[in-house]
Design a binder for these strands. Sequence first.
DNA 1: TCCCTAACGCAACATCTGTAGCGTACTGAC
DNA 2: GTCAGTACGCTACAGATGTTGCGTTAGGGA
Lengths: 198, 198
Amino acid sequence: MTAMSEPADDDAPRRRTGGRSARVRSAVLQATIAQLLEVGYDRLSVHEVAAAAGVAPTTVYRRWPTRAELILAALQELSAVAIEVPDTGTLEGDLRSLIRSIAATVGQPALRPVQRSIAALPDDVAGEYRRSFWADRLDRTSAVVERAIARGELPEGTEPSHVLELLIAPIWFRLIISDTPLDDDALDRWVRAAIAAA
Amino acid sequence: MTAMSEPADDDAPRRRTGGRSARVRSAVLQATIAQLLEVGYDRLSVHEVAAAAGVAPTTVYRRWPTRAELILAALQELSAVAIEVPDTGTLEGDLRSLIRSIAATVGQPALRPVQRSIAALPDDVAGEYRRSFWADRLDRTSAVVERAIARGELPEGTEPSHVLELLIAPIWFRLIISDTPLDDDALDRWVRAAIAAA
DNA sequence: TCCCTAACGCAACATCTGTAGCGTACTGAC
DNA sequence: GTCAGTACGCTACAGATGTTGCGTTAGGGA
């Protein structure tokens, strides 16, 4: 997290981000995701990832010194997908639509190993990423709550992130912590709970 | 998860659970916890655990073939602690007391590596444990909600586990998923939310 | 106390993981 | 096109991880 994009040192090496390097990076991260999906965090082998990417193991180790850093990079790549914010005209409609689309994508059992990997990464490696990712996610969906406030469905001064956090938390609790399947009744209940809380 | 404690086979080996075996088991699991707290999931070395426990590495491998199984066993040992259920006379008082004591114990930063380990364990190893653990946890604290129903604070037919799940989920979301610190304002908000939802 | 054998220790080994040095290829600026 | 130097491939290797076989210790029933 360096604040400046241009280092102060004038003898700084000129990094190469295009061409071969870009192809290597892409291939390795893609192979990492594939391995994660297949065998999970602790059975992931850097050598096998390198082989699958058609790259020498040493190359992988040089760019991502630890497995945690490699996995983090792969996950960052994967989580860069956009999220669409619904606009149904009512808060309940919006939240219901939102939670269902989240549950549909994130609830897929095949993704569980990947999600567990994010949770497993130590704080000093992934802490900053997790915080900024969720701050961004909650911020991007805050429009739903802000429109509800404008419509008078929610009192002035309601904090959007609080509402959305309450909506989303139970999903992840079930997926990662309590290892319990999601059901539509629960989703609706959490929508009503988030509204009632605000 | 064999249903019977006594195998049907009459030539079944008579397991030895006491004496030396018990000491070895205890020492190894204790050393595992210590390692988990110190270096976390993926840097945990079975050889070092064995050394710390004063035991041969092969002994550890024989009893717990994979690191995941070893860690699971250690966590089961650790999570066997009892939870005290408050009784303040009001639902809000009870939930506030409950969430504060949970946050105080589980919120300690030093425990984060251990918690991440639970989350990291693959479903086929720890799934059954996680489900039964949380079913039990929610069941043990359900008295709080049942008393509130009896007092007329909550409508008849309210499902205790739903209320408690909603209360607890945000804690774990912050600790494991969004990596955000807990604050007292948030705890109070979640108490009110859980009540409002029911 | 005796005896059977489960559970452990030890040594030797096969495999996997990560590092270091050096030569080569490709990038990107001129 | 030219060229400096970054990023990669390759080989060799050090160390960690996990397995196998066999001898030894000690638990627990008789």
